[in-house]
Simulated scan of single mutants.
Amino acid sequence: MGKGGRILCIVTPYALTIASLICIIIVGLGCTNSSSDTLNDLYFFRANIQNMTSTSTNSSKVSEALSKAGVTVSDGDISSALEQVQKQFNLSDFYDIGLWGYCSGNITKNDYEVTECSKPKSEFWFNPVQVWGLEETGLENGLPSGLRKSLNLYKNVSKWMFIAYIIAFVATIIELVVGVFAVCSRWGSCVTTLVSGVAFLFTAAASVTATAMFATVTGAFNENLKNYGMHGSMGKNIYVATWLAVAFSLGAALFWMLSTCCCSGRSPYNHKNKATRGITAEKAPYTYEPLGPQGTPNTSYPPPPPPAQNRTNAYEPFRHV
């Protein structure tokens, strides 16, 4: 198979690599533009605090936690603090968390309308204590221990998740660049296969980390804050995008590997090929062959024309092998 077949063999993994890169870009664009409804629907986690209330069926545990932290307040003081947070800091109805930042907005008849988004920041993690102003009300140490542990885990793991996505993005771009050289030879396919393996590993690692981490955060959020009318949920579209990136990256890696052992770019009709150099066709038996003047076979082809008057050449009826 020649260059044309080699190109056809490379088209499939190249297209899968492009698809994986697009999905990774979609994940990164989530929660970055408040005016785009499509991008606003790309979030890892959503905190719905529209129905946040100052009363709780579990107020005694919160009071106990505050007492251990050195803050002496009653249930009425906690209720007043929550009301003060809502009035003083003008909290939004919901907060969406993405890879680079978060977006917030209001809920009108079950319609989530984003009003603003934070500036993109590397290694971003959403700190509700700072965003919601809890540190100024004395409620920072009053958060349930399970929620605080989940927030600390989210803070540490989110940095690794961000780095993994960046490496996956860069490796996928390098895979596209190196993949051009795979058209020329199998060595190019070999190098591209190695790069695609790195891209797949980090894409899968980032996707697994994001899914597991935000599933933990969602469970802790609902378990500890549901008594205050707050609810957390995981997004859908962004997880579809990130796992599609994993699937496309895996398919590209497999097809790049396949291209290293098939679809050679060297033409079988290349006359410079040493394997075909010097090969001559064998003469079939029982064929006529001109003889020389002394009855020896004439090795020149085509045979020279016979003399005009004195014709000494003769033809052997059969050549026996």
Rank of each mutant, 00 (worst) to 15 (best):
P304K: 09
I279P: 01
Y286C: 15
N51E: 08
L194S: 13
K61Q: 14
I97G: 08
L29V: 15
N156A: 08
S118V: 02
Y228D: 04
N237R: 11
T57G: 11
N310T: 07
V191Y: 05
L143F: 14
V62N: 08
G197F: 01
V62E: 04
A215Q: 10
V321S: 09
T209N: 08
L99W: 09
N48K: 03
T53R: 15
G188Q: 08
Y228K: 00
Y14S: 14
S56Y: 08
K236P: 00
F162A: 09
Y315G: 04
A69I: 09
G278R: 10
G179M: 11
N270G: 05
S104I: 07
T192D: 08
I174G: 03
L201P: 02
S145C: 02
I238D: 06
S189D: 12
A182N: 01
E289M: 13
I174W: 01
A210R: 03
F169Q: 11
S196M: 01
T242L: 06
V208S: 03
A215G: 08
E136Y: 09
A212R: 03
I163M: 13
K149T: 15
L176E: 00
N227I: 03
Y43D: 11
K109M: 04
V178R: 15
M230S: 03
N227K: 11
R319P: 10
L194A: 15
S74T: 14
L134I: 05
V11T: 15
E175W: 00
S264Q: 00
S80F: 06
N313A: 10
G98Q: 02
L176C: 14
K149H: 15
S233W: 00
L176W: 14
Y239L: 07
K3R: 04
V157A: 08
A245W: 00
W132T: 05
N270D: 15
A245D: 09
N48P: 00
P144L: 06
Y43T: 07
K226M: 00
E123S: 14
T55L: 02
T32L: 03
E135T: 09
K155N: 02
D41G: 12
L16N: 05
A215E: 11
L82D: 05
L151D: 00
D41N: 14
E316I: 14
T260V: 14
M230L: 07
S104T: 11
E64R: 07
Q309C: 13
T172N: 15
I173M: 07
I78Q: 05
V321W: 11
G229R: 02
T72E: 12
F169C: 04
A314R: 10
W160T: 11
L91V: 10
N110V: 02
F126H: 06
K155L: 05
A47E: 01
G265I: 00
V131Y: 08
G295W: 11
G98C: 13
